[in-house]
Amino acid sequence: MISKEDIQNLANLARIEISETEAENLVPEIDSILGYVGQIKDAIGNSERVIPKLRNVMRGDVVSNSPDEYKEALLNNAPAREGDYLKVKKIL
């Protein structure tokens, strides 16, 4: 059984503010989903982990676009900018 406190803790880890009532409502919902997916614990036997045929491969870290090509488009998507910087509230 998952508790209201567990939900609040998960929400903190996931950086989502959750109200008391919402946490209460989420308890039965998440419980029933975890109950359902928990059936995999009954599955017998483990298989060896194999590397899938298709997987992420990192590209070389090289500049592939011209200077400023995307700068304005990217910065303009930010809710708050100051010059060429993203503006955020104080951290400490």
């Binding site: 996931a14 950086r15 989502i16 503010e17 959750i18 998507n77 930010a78 809710p79 708050a80 993203l86 955020v88 509230k89 104080k90 951290i91």
Partner: peptide
Amino acid sequence: IKYGLHAEDGKDLLDDYLKTRR
């Protein structure tokens, strides 16, 4: 911070994350 909605009422950066995502 990077794109889309930004909640206005956070008291610091962490609070901005929490409120925006909510």
